[in-house]
C-alpha cells in the first residue's frame, strides 16, 4: 500500500512540477494545489498506513495509526488553503492590472 501511494505521490509531483513550469498563471496555481495534495499524501505515508484503527480512543482498539502526521497534515492543509487563496487573488489582480496571463511576458523590470 505504502509503495502504491508513494508512486501515486510521484505521479502527482510530476504533474504538479510540469504545471508549475508552464506559462499560464492558472496552470501554475493548479500546479501548486496538486503539489500540496502530493505532499499531504506523502506525510500520510510517512506515518505508516493502515497500521491500526482511527486515532479515536472511543473505538477501544488495540493500536492506532500514527496521529501526529494527521495533525501535521491538517495544519498543512489549512496553510496551503490560505496560500492558494492568496495566490489565486494575486493572480487575477495581476491579470487585471497587466492584462497578461502569461508568466513569460510578466517579466517585470530588469534594466529597462
Amino acid at each position: 500500500m505504502e509503495t502504491l501511494i508513494t508512486i501515486l505521490v510521484g505521479i502527482l509531483v510530476t504533474v504538479a512540477v510540469y504545471l508549475l513550469l508552464s506559462r499560464s498563471l492558472i496552470r501554475i496555481i493548479v500546479g501548486s494545489a496538486v503539489l500540496s495534495h502530493a505532499v499531504h499524501l506523502l506525510l500520510m505515508v510517512m506515518g505508516g498506513l493502515k497500521k491500526g484503527s482511527a486515532p479515536l480512543l472511543d473505538e477501544n482498539a488495540t493500536s492506532y495509526t500514527d496521529p501526529l502526521p494527521q495533525a501535521l497534515i491538517l495544519t498543512a492543509i489549512v496553510i496551503s488553503f490560505a496560500v492558494t487563496a492568496f495566490l489565486l487573488v494575486l493572480g487575477y489582480r495581476t491579470y487585471k492590472e497587466t492584462g497578461l496571463d502569461d508568466s513569460k511576458e510578466l517579466r517585470g523590470f530588469t534594466d529597462e
Binding site: 498563471l25 492558472i26 494545489a33 499531504h40 500520510m44 493502515k50 491500526g52 484503527s53 482511527a54 486515532p55 479515536l56 492506532y64 495509526t65 494527521q70 497534515i73 491538517l74 492543509i77 489549512v78 488553503f81 492558494t84 487563496a85 489565486l88 487573488v89 493572480g91 487575477y92 491579470y95 487585471k96 496571463d101
Partner: peptide, 27 residues
C-alpha cells in the same frame, strides 16, 4: 483511518473550488 483529515480535506477542497470559480470570472 484519518477521519478528521477526510472531513477537512473535503471542505477545503470544496471551498478552494469555489474560490477558483470565483476568480475565474476575472481570469
Amino acid at each position: 483511518r484519518a477521519p478528521d483529515l477526510a472531513l477537512t480535506q473535503i471542505v477545503v477542497e470544496t471551498v478552494t473550488t469555489a474560490l477558483f470559480l470565483l476568480c475565474f470570472y476575472f481570469l
